[in-house]
């Protein structure tokens, strides 16, 4: 039977919560094994980053939605963290199988990788709950938390966020079709616009690529 928009939204939220009920707020034993296999154990830096970004997210969420909603922001962030660890473990298992390695020191000690992955997980949670994060008493104005809001919150470049999307979708088979389409729209928005904004890492990569190819052209300014 066709669902009303409200019923569809409630089902999506329930589905997400059910999936994440079995996930943990901390790295699993399997994840800890991967951390221990690293040349430099990233566990402490990962935990500290998660803690730091919780405060950042809670603050920005409260600024966007209302100070009274800070705890709602914290709850949504915590769901995002569970998804983050769950997807990270799945990604590492796939990479271990693909590359036949167990030492992912460079990847797991990379701040950009973790921030991008966590941002993607939190984006999934925020998008599942929808645009309106306010209490339903009608006293608050609607607040737009839709993408690319999360990039501003975590001070993340769109191009770096883009890098995790496809692997995220591959690593999390429980993502609904609606959520996959949402992430695909994020990809398109990045490819068509956000990745080309001033300061994007894309320009440096293009420049390096041209230098490797031996071309001596001066890179065009980003404004053109």
């Amino acid at each position: 039977l066709p669902q009303t928009p409200v019923r569809a939204a409630m089902n999506s939220i329930q589905q997400l919560i059910m999936i994440l009920n079995s996930a943990t707020d901390k790295p699993s034993d399997t994840l800890v094994r991967y951390f221990n296999n690293c040349t430099v154990n990233p566990k402490d830096s990962i935990l500290k980053r998660v803690e730091r970004l919780e405060q950042v997210f809670k603050k920005k969420f409260a600024e966007a939605v209302g100070q009274g909603c800070a705890e709602i922001g914290s709850q949504r962030y915590k769901l995002g963290v569970r998804l983050y660890y769950r997807v990270m473990e799945s990604m590492l298992k796939s990479e271990e199988e693909r590359l036949s390695v167990q030492n992912f020191s460079k990847l797991l000690n990379g701040n950009v990788f973790h921030t991008s992955l966590l941002a993607c997980a939190v984006e999934v949670v925020v998008a599942t709950y929808g645009r309106n994060a306010s209490p339903s008493d009608g006293t608050s104005a609607e607040t737009d938390l839709s993408f690319p809001w999360i990039l501003n919150v975590f001070d993340l470049k769109a191009f770096d966020f883009y890098k995790v999307i496809e692997s995220f979708i591959k690593a999390e088979p429980s993502l609904t079709r609606v959520m996959i389409k949402h992430l695909e729209r994020c990809e398109h928005q990045i490819m068509e616009s956000l990745a080309w904004q001033s300061g994007s890492p894309l320009f440096e990569l293009i420049k390096q690529s041209k230098e490797r190819e031996g071309q001596a052209d001066q890179p065009e300014p980003s404004v053109t």
Binding site: L99, L107, E166
Partner: peptide
């Protein structure tokens, strides 16, 4: 994932994307 276009090739994954190969 039927409608989603997977762009990564067979030998590509998250390690390459973050320059960790």
């Amino acid at each position: 994932t039927q409608d989603y276009h997977f762009g990564l090739e067979e030998g590509e994954g998250i390690s390459e994307l973050f320059d960790c190969d």
